[in-house]
Nucleic acid binder design. Structure first.
Lengths: 131, 131
DNA sequence: CTTAAAGTCTGTAATCGCTACAGAGTCAAG
DNA sequence: CTTGACTCTGTAGCGATTACAGACTTTAAG
């Protein structure tokens, strides 16, 4: 099948499919006489895997590694767990960071009486280095 | 003062200072005979404002607007509030999104018995389109 | 006075994960 | 036979920096 159908079946944009091939997480395809990429079922499977992993926020590098591990069924899945844990850890850190930002913004915003710019506490707070 | 001292006083990297000038959120400087940038106190103030706003996650475009509003003390600070609220909203949405990712990752991760890759439920879950 | 080190300049490329073209070629239907 | 849909490659853009290379200037020490 050609890239258009692969796109419809996998849910990946055409340009993204070509991108995944370029960065080496999607296996290269056979080419037709005219140079069109020809996709097989396993490509669709791969694309769905990639898409789902991306939806869960895994990086392309993580996915490369996950796909490579997938090819070695006899290995312990500890490496997979480790990638997942690291990723989860990263997400939790980002959440904590964003929560602290939100708290701080809320605090600053609440302190502003809402009159003229001259008395705006938000701008004032931004002007002061560490408050 | 030259860029090195401006960097030390403001806490911005030298290259970042030049970048802020290039994108137009830091006022251009007078140049010395040899072409070195000469910074005054108000540049340091501006840099601290920018740095703090960036720490709170405001975009460069937001900052450009905040700085421009700051120059008009007679205006209502409603525009400032609006930028801040929008930003806070964006952060809260990102938090929600990351929390849903974390829940899903946790769920998938917990379902894995931890043996061989062949039985790894994480890889299995990633392979299945919508679960 | 010379030389070495530290500072500064401009311009360009890299980061990440796509997305969006331009311009050319291919294929199927009417 | 032509129109339109599809595909190709290659390149540039996004955002906010960071990281050079290669050239120039200034400062401090010997």
């Amino acid at each position: 099948m050609k890239i258009g159908e692969a796109s419809r079946l996998s849910g990946c944009h055409i340009e993204t499919i070509r991108y995944y091939e370029r960065v080496g997480i999607l296996s290269p395809t056979v080419r037709s006489e005219s140079g069109y990429r020809c996709y097989a079922d396993h490509h669709i499977q791969q694309l769905r895997f990639i898409l789902h992993a991306r939806e869960l926020g895994f990086s392309v590098d993580d996915i490369r590694e996950l796909l490579s591990l997938k090819e070695q069924p006899d290995l312990s899945c500890q490496a997979v767990d480790s990638i997942t844990d690291k990723h989860l850890h990263g997400i939790r850190n980002r959440i904590k960071y964003l929560e602290s930002l939100a708290r701080e913004l809320r605090r600053i915003s609440a302190s502003c009486p809402g009159g003229d710019i001259a008395e705006c506490r938000i701008l004032e707070a931004l002007g002061n280095s560490s408050d």
